[in-house]
Design a protein around this nucleic acid. Structure first.
Lengths: 244, 244
DNA sequence: GCCGATTTGTCCGTATGTATC
DNA sequence: CGATACATACGGACAAATCGG
């Protein structure tokens, strides 16, 4: 839990923006005004504003000020955000989650698995296949590989509740960075078996490699979502003439 | 063009990482070492490292050092990155781009358009429909709405070459923030007409609102991609107990 | 157009805290 | 325990963009 000053300011401003204490398109107080309000240095204010900028909440304008450009999103679909567990996602989307473990096995990575997951051939892994339901509707099919060395003691029971809690609280893993790619793929036999796909013949697929704070990859996950309940959000900023 | 010091360091390190001057999983020199190497303050070094961290290039570890966790990606599909024009994307993916303008019209936003695009009802807009080909293969169908007030003088000819060049160089628009959502949707009549979809009945759809440096939304775009040539990348970092 | 006040952008030097080894 | 390394925070300086008089 960051008790950092900039984090406090960040959360405070974020809430004020979300609750429309500052209106859409309205100018926020100047950085120096915040310095007085929060009793801190300008750098600290700027750090909080930088986070909000990266998330598309505000837009700083040189010489003018900082504008609120936050607009709430329609919440019909299941939005995908940062690194979070299925439970956390469900809570954020205000849905009731349920997990059914379809497979639980210990495997050793071969070359085929290495290419897909990034785990070196020969590595000991847990493989888990799970069906995720929201409000009783089966919508997501997860294929997980966990590095056995760091996640020893994983069981189907844990897989049914929350693996992330186990990793963080029992294994002492600090989850850090996740690299994700998003693609659209044909449905598989397994998809069709467990998910009511209407007439869709595709799934939205998020593949991710997750690293701990030592830079060790401990997880590879492929998350296959039913198209009509899938929504991914992103904010990009133009690197004023970037291009490397 | 940023001639900023931190940007120079950022680009330099980025290149050294991409060219494997620093090996995967290798520790980078310490921040203080960089301070001496670049002749700058530690803050400046840290700013450059922060950017690389956000992009998933490196991982800082408290008390230990900064580790290179960059891995190059398979380049078979068409990867989508930050804010960039079709031309820029094509160049990055090393493909030859071609654009065919299917429709060019001036429209006034009604409520239906307002809901989809975020432009207030009554706003004057340009509407453009374009087919994008890579190496001769039609792969992407774009629907654009541009705010007429800021993009006056747009023509089908410009739409066929590069709208972004026109916006930045002629209209003097500084492109800043883009909010995107990614979904998977059923194919439409128009999709089927112009794109060879094999047996896919879905498209990967990126919808984006783009803002200039005054916080004015000047563009709404829906970009419909053929699934097998679509790949979206993203790096997420865990906000050590985030949750608002 | 110029000037000064305001505001954001970049950079520096320093101090202190915390985690690792 | 001490040395090293990253994390947070402060205060100050100057540059660059904007705006009003």
């Amino acid at each position: 839990m960051p008790k950092a000053k900039y984090d406090h300011i960040y959360k405070d401003l974020k809430e004020k923006i979300e609750t429309e204490f500052y209106a859409y398109q309205q100018m926020l107080p100047s950085e120096n005004a915040f310095v007085k309000e929060y009793g801190c240095s300008r750098n600290t204010v700027r750090r909080a504003l930088a986070e909000l900028t990266a998330e598309g909440y505000v837009q700083p304008m040189h010489g003018k000020g900082v504008r609120n450009i936050f607009q709430p999103v329609e919440q019909t679909a299941f939005t995908v955000g940062g690194i979070e567990s299925f439970k956390e996602s469900a809570a954020r989307n205000k849905k009731t989650p349920f997990t059914r473990v379809l497979q639980f096995a210990e495997v050793t990575a071969d070359e085929k698995i290495e290419r897909r997951t990034g785990f070196k051939s020969g590595t000991e892994l847990y493989y888990i296949q799970r069906l995720r339901s929201l409000d009783g509707k089966p919508l997501i099919l997860d294929h997980n590989y966990f590095l056995k060395e760091l996640t020893e003691g994983l069981t189907p029971e844990i897989a049914a509740s929350s693996v992330y809690e186990y990793l963080e609280n029992v294994c002492g893993i600090t989850i850090s960075t996740s690299k994700r790619t998003l693609t659209v793929e044909h449905v598989t036999q397994v998809d069709e078996t467990y998910i009511d796909l209407k007439d869709y013949n595709c799934m939205a697929v998020i593949s991710s490699q997750t690293f701990d704070d030592n830079g060790i990859q401990f997880e590879y996950t492929q998350s296959r979502h039913r198209p009509d309940y899938f929504l991914f959000q992103d904010v990009a900023t133009r690197n004023h003439r970037s291009g490397t």
